[in-house]
């Protein structure tokens, strides 16, 4: 049993060792982490108010407190003559200063007088049809696009593992049922089904995640099922069972870790697919509801302006395909690194 426990540890170390040697995969990982950082720190990177304000010897954190003003300083007025500057020192009273985010715009504030402006010093990525800052929307869009990917795939993987494990472990009726269910999902054109369900459900970012997840688990289930069929016959499983381990324990403690490699790889590819699906849904008008920004949404909004507003189409397009390529490279790297045959 001890031996069993330690194997995964060294196994993952091996995987990492192999993974590290793949430059493309490492580059993909770096890009992925970069987008992650952007998503996590979005409010500090783009906001319509300062991060930090010093006023009569006091410190204020407007982003976190939600204050509209401090003393004589109203953010809107401060911003008017500030653009774009991180440190704003020359405030009314001596010693007062403000520290601004890199992009001093929120994702939703609009300015009709500044609509469809090409990139300028104020708006690095230009503005959209309502004069909203494209860079700010993309920074917040990173949150949506990434969370759609992760949550959708999380759902898909959980369902897939559970059903696949049940089918593979118990066989017989359970297997029949799960196999029929997989078949049913395989037979309906996926995108058609997603549209149908999305059209019928009230639109929200969560429904999109759930639907992409619910339609995407069959691959994982098939992997796990096949893997379990093989594992069931192996000595260590038979031994554990002989020792009286419960089914649940067998499945989740002993067998599952051994079947995780292909699941992980397909999950990483799945994230890429989910981001792509989200952008296609946006194009059809079934994307995230306004005013939430997502990359797919910005990109599809650009449809009407494509002939002259290149910034609306290039920036989100590049963001989508770099992040998807990055995920795929990570997935590819993981697959190779996890291939036990290469360990020999």
């Amino acid at each position: 049993m001890r031996q069993q426990r330690e194997t995964p540890h060294t196994y993952w170390r091996m995987v990492w060792k192999h993974f590290r040697q793949k430059h493309l995969a490492v580059a993909g990982l770096a890009v992925t982490l970069f987008f992650f950082a952007v998503a996590i720190f979005a409010p500090l990177l783009a906001n319509d108010r300062p991060i930090l304000v010093r006023h009569s010897g006091q410190w204020y954190w407007p982003i976190f407190s939600g204050l509209e003003r401090v003393g004589p300083y109203h953010w809107k007025e401060l911003k008017r003559d500030n653009l774009p500057r991180i440190y704003q020192g020359d405030l009314g009273a001596p010693g007062d200063f403000a520290v601004w985010p890199l992009v001093p715009y929120s994702a939703t504030e609009y300015d009709l007088l500044a609509s469809l402006e090409p990139p300028t010093v104020q708006h690095w990525f230009g503005t959209d049809d309502r004069g909203r800052d494209v860079l700010s929307r993309m920074i917040y869009g990173a949150r949506i696009s990434l969370s759609v990917g992760f949550v959708a795939v999380g759902i898909a993987v959980s369902i897939g593992i559970l059903l696949g494990a049940l089918a593979g472990y118990f066989g017989g009726w359970a297997d029949q049922l799960v196999s029929r269910l997989i078949e049913i999902l395989l037979t309906i054109p996926t995108f058609f089904m997603i549209i149908a369900i999305i059209a019928f459900l009230p639109p929200s970012i969560y429904n999109i995640m759930v639907v992409i997840g619910l339609t995407g688990w069959t691959g994982v289930a098939r992997f796990v099922r096949a893997e379990f069929f093989k594992l069931k016959q192996l000595d260590f499983v038979l031994a554990s069972r002989a020792l009286g381990a419960s089914s649940a324990r067998l499945i989740f403690v002993h067998m599952l870790p051994n079947a995780m490699a292909p699941v992980l790889v397909s999950a990483v590819f799945g994230i890429a697919g989910a981001i792509l699906t989200e952008s296609s849904l946006s194009f059809l008008g079934f994307g995230v509801p306004p005013p939430t920004p997502s990359w797919g949404d910005i990109l599809s909004q650009s449809r009407d302006y494509i002939e002259f507003a290149w910034w609306l189409t290039i920036f989100p397009g590049v963001a989508i395909f770099t992040s998807i390529t990055a995920y795929n490279l990570v997935g590819e790297g993981l697959r190779d690194a996890m291939d036990p045959k290469l360990f020999r």
Partner: peptide, 28 residues
Amino acid sequence: AEQLATIMQENLKQVGIQMGIRKLEWAV
């Protein structure tokens, strides 16, 4: 409608009214 909704939402926020936007497919 979407442009109008996002603009109204920002305007109403300024005076302290919370407006949520719900985008529904035509049939619904």
